[in-house]
Write a protein that binds this DNA or RNA. Structure first.
Length: 474
RNA sequence: GGCGCCGUAGCCAAGUGGUAAGGCAGAGCUCUGCAAAAGCUCCAUUCUCCGGUUCGAAUCCGGACGGCGCCUCCA
């Protein structure tokens, strides 16, 4: 078996072979930092996280680049609309860069909580204006772009391949009545590479075409090529970015370099509620930091991983709660195993183990995390039985498997530092358990039950078994 | 109008030609002073519907119905 990835460009699963043996360059379109992150961001960046984690598990040297868009795009590619960062800045009476910095920090906080590893390089659009201008100059020199009164547009008619990612033909676009004609573009489907800054536009830079700011799509082309080369292995993002954003990126990049821009395009599907897309503009979206008040962030990650990244995820309380219940069952098994194993040096991962094999087979199939999680439930059952049967030899082997599959690849095990903070002293708990045991021995069940009930209310669960009483935090 | 996706048990959800994964909820049993946890067992003769291809279809083809996405900022 080998890793197969569904390539949006070819609309089929392809065996993954990196351009340079042993190394992978990947780019996932990052957020525009003018508001807080919502569940849609979680799904997209969990996908990027899983892809990079699994590639590393397979032994690849991965460079993961994810931009921070701190130049507000116009709300459309015509000459209308407003810069989103400018709007937020004006409302809050702040400089646009304050807005960008504020939400960038909060973005990372929100993603950290989901156990999403930070990208290796997180370039900001405002830090790469020079690169963007250079790319635009090249496109002008090669005749793929034209300037009108301080605005520079990409000439879609010059690009024979335009539409190859999204399956759109330019003639069809022209037939659509939805493309605004009100601008100085030659053709409605041409898109802006550089915009002239009007009076009052705060974010602006000097350029060969006068003061202005970059268009929506150019930053990703410029930054991905700067850090990953002219052809990169994997480029991805949310499905709604397929058109026009990624289509335009391909047009710009390939016209400038004459080389393929991306080998594998990956797109994640949406998060829905009641079957309808959750989105900012629809007003049915939920901010992650609000959800964190109600749910453990890792159980939200688990909920998302229980569906495939290319399918939709139905995000309703009933689904989240049932996922959370299943997730806690897995964690319970892992916690008991960790306690049973104690502090010993763990063996290396045995990749020939049946459970590991099945897990790899699932992940090799276009990152099928739902199937991979089903394997973890078998791992949990095996773990629970091994603990009950006191198979001491087997336990460290199982713990290694948990840490590799559930921990390193899926990222659903709590990090040691972030596990439930305990203000409960183990020594005091042992004392309480000892007294309760004495009460039980003299059959004072009223007392022993009262102790259990009150501890439960304090967040500590007691569990009696043949081996004695154990405790855990709720 | 153009392009595309989806419809699997009460809920979430994998499966894309070989006879329905997994989780939650539910039922029973084991263990147990009780509870919890855990284990075992049960829980879709069937995949929206109707035709077709095939030895064989949830999976392929055609049609109907229902839902959704993109085409405008969006993960």
């Amino acid at each position: 078996m080998a890793l197969e990835i569904y390539n949006t460009l070819t609309r089929k699963k392809e065996v993954f072979t990196p351009i340079h043996e042993g190394r992978v360059g990947m780019y996932i379109c990052g957020p525009t930092v003018y508001s807080d992150s919502h569940v849609g961001h979680a799904k997209a960046y969990i996908m990027g996280d899983i892809v990079s984690r699994y590639l590393r598990f397979l032994g690849y040297e991965v460079t993961y680049v994810q931009n921070i868009t701190d130049v507000g795009h116009l709300t459309d590619d015509a000459d209308e609309g407003e810069d989103k960062l400018d709007v937020a800045a004006r409302k809050q009476k702040k400089h646009p860069m304050e807005i960008a910095e504020f939400y960038t920090r909060r973005y990372y906080e929100d993603m950290d909580a989901l156990n999403i590893r930070r990208p290796d390089i997180a370039p900001r659009a405002t830090g790469h204006i020079i690169e963007q201008i250079e790319l635009i100059k090249e496109l002008l020199e090669k005749g793929f772009a034209y300037e009108v009164d301080g605005n520079v547009y990409f000439d879609v008619s010059k690009d024979k391949d335009y539409g190859k990612l999204s399956g759109r033909k330019t003639e069809e676009q022209e037939a659509s009545g939805r493309v605004e004609a009100r601008s100085d573009k030659r053709s409605p489907q041409d898109f802006a590479l550089w915009k002239r800054a009007e009076k009052g536009h705060v974010l602006r830079w000097p350029s060969p075409w006068g003061d202005g700011y970059p268009g929506w799509h150019i930053e990703c082309s410029a930054m991905s090529m700067k850090y990953l080369g002219q052809t990169i292995d994997i480029h991805g993002g949310g499905l709604e970015n397929q058109f026009p954003h990624h289509e335009c990126e391909i047009a710009q990049s390939e016209s400038a370099t004459g080389k393929p821009f991306v080998k594998y395009w990956i797109h994640n599907n949406m998060v829905t509620t009641g079957g309808v897309k959750m989105g900012k503009s629809l007003g049915n979206s939920a901010y992650l930091r609000d959800l964190y008040q109600q749910y453990n962030p890792l159980s939200l990650r688990f909920t998302i991983l229980q569906s495939h990244y290319r399918g939709t995820t139905e995000f309703v309380p009933e689904a989240i709660k049932s996922a959370e219940a299943g997730y806690e069952k897995l964690l319970g098994s892992y916690d008991r195993l960790k306690q049973a194993v104690g502090d010993v040096v763990l063996p290396p991962l045995d990749r020939s183990n049946t459970i590991v094999q099945r897990f790899i087979e699932a992940m090799d199939d276009d990152f099928n995390t739902a199937k991979a999680i089903a394997v973890l439930y078998d791992l949990a059952t095996e773990t629970n039985n091994a603990i009950a049967a006191k198979e001491k030899e087997k336990l460290p082997i199982l713990l290694t498997i948990w840490q590799n599959l559930a921990g390193d690849v899926l990222g659903i095990l709590p990090l040691a530092s972030s596990s439930k903070s305990s203000d409960v002293s183990p020594a005091l708990m042992n004392l309480i358990i000892k007294w309760r045991k004495e009460a039980r021995e003299r059959r004072d069940f009223a007392m022993s039950d009262a102790i259990r009930k009150e501890l439960d209310e304090a967040g500590v669960v007691l569990e009696d078994s043949k081996e004695g009483t154990s405790w855990r935090l709720k």
